[in-house]
Amino acid sequence: MQALVVGDLRIEALDDDASSAVRLLWKGKSNNRHPAEALAPYFREVLATAGRRQQPLELHFEDLEHFNSSTITSIIQLIQDARARGIKLVLVYDHALKWQKLSFDALRVFVKDDLLELRSA
């Protein structure tokens, strides 16, 4: 899978056949005015890959410097889409960064079962 580069944001995909999950590494800053325009189609592609391989999708935010509230909305949409497709979604964050801890602790409101996991790195 190709990386996604949108402005200051770069999402690298780690999806070799030997891995146990499709992994997206978020780097830089997600500060686009309309992040869904690029993120939504990319997420659809990634979910399709994870679905074909019957693997969970892991998003790694540990190296991300910042995201805006519009990006949070896109992540919420991904949570819903992954659940609708029965694909396990794992959001990995750095709990030592207060902003990440607060953001991702709040997203636990969407955890209903094993399909969504929020993991501290």
Partner: peptide, 11 residues
């Protein structure tokens, strides 16, 4: 967050 997930508001 739950409202955002449920609503049909424009992004």
């Amino acid at each position: 967050l739950l409202e955002v997930a449920a609503a049909a508001r424009e992004p």
